[in-house]
């Protein structure tokens, strides 16, 4: 069974996001382990990109901090390889397609397999374009994790049928970032997904409180927090470890049991 499948097996999953290399890759390694200790079931590592079009100001700023500190795709792979000696927590990348395209799809997927990256979420690769990558990724055992949006409507079933790993349910319109209120009918989307697949669902975009984690983990199979975690790193930098542990513990405890 894949590490991602195990993360959702008979339990709800809390997924935490970090921008890799923010503020340094050594710290990313430490933060991943802290978040695991605090109860995270899966970690999403953002591969920094110069122009993250699907991200809001918080994650944009983290991308700039990481790139300015000299983070590269190769160095992130090395960090993951090092982490894999210490943990079996599932690790997925969030990467813009150009990162993979420029590296070479085959070379990228092979490095994922070698280093222990379980999946990749690509916010600018919709269903219609995935055929150029998915056959290569599956050859190397890498799940390409697809997104379903509030506007997906009749596309939901088509996307869900082909999904691997888990399905990322985008709960809000616009770019990433904390929101006080989410108006999308997530329950309806999850119901449609479940009518065609057993692939688990996790809800993200805008989630930042334990009430939201509780609500969405009862509707779906997991909840994702990104910007709120990255904000802690922005504020406390290298000293974020303990703060991340506290925040993630609180959020993971709020999961529906």
């Amino acid at each position: 069974m894949s590490r991602i499948k195990k993360a959702f097996e008979n339990k709800k999953a809390f997924i935490g996001f970090l921008t890799a290399g923010d503020p340094t890759l050594e710290k990313t390694e430490e933060f991943v382990l802290e978040m695991e200790r605090a109860g995270a079931s899966l970690i999403e590592l953002g591969v920094p990109f110069s122009d993250p079009i699907a991200d809001g100001p918080v994650i944009q700023a983290a991308n700039i901090r990481s790139l300015s500190a000299g983070c590269t795709t190769d160095k992130i792979f090395e960090t993951v390889a090092s982490l894999r000696k210490k943990t079996e927590i599932p690790l997925v990348f969030l990467a813009y397609l150009n990162t993979l395209y420029k590296y070479g799809y085959e070379a990228f997927c092979k490095r994922c397999q070698d280093c222990g990256v379980d999946g990749v979420i690509i916010p600018d690769m919709p269903f219609e374009e995935k055929e150029e990558l998915v056959p290569i990724a599956s050859q190397y055992g890498v799940d390409i994790i697809t997104m379903v949006a509030p506007t997906s409507k009749e596309r939901i079933k088509m996307i869900a049928k082909d999904a691997t790993g888990f399905i990322y349910v985008v709960s809000s319109m616009g770019v990433t970032g904390a929101r006080s209120e989410i108006t999308t009918d997530v329950a309806e989307i999850v119901e449609i997904i479940r009518s065609v697949t057993k692939t688990p669902t996790a809800v993200g975009f805008g989630i930042n409180t334990k009430e939201q984690v509780h609500k969405y983990s009862s509707i779906a199979d997991g909840a994702i927090i990104g910007s709120a975690i990255v904000k802690i790193v922005a504020q406390y930098g290298e000293k974020s470890g303990a703060k991340l542990y506290d925040y993630v513990s609180e959020m993971a405890d709020a999961l529906t049991k």
């Binding site: 269903f127 374009e129 985008v170």
Partner: peptide
């Protein structure tokens, strides 16, 4: 592969949120 190709160039590499609109 999506519509709108000029040789290998072009395509629709955008977030899912925009697909129905596009």
């Amino acid at each position: 592969m999506s519509a709108g190709r000029f040789g290998k160039h072009g395509g629709q590499y955008i977030p899912e949120t925009l697909m129905n609109e596009i």
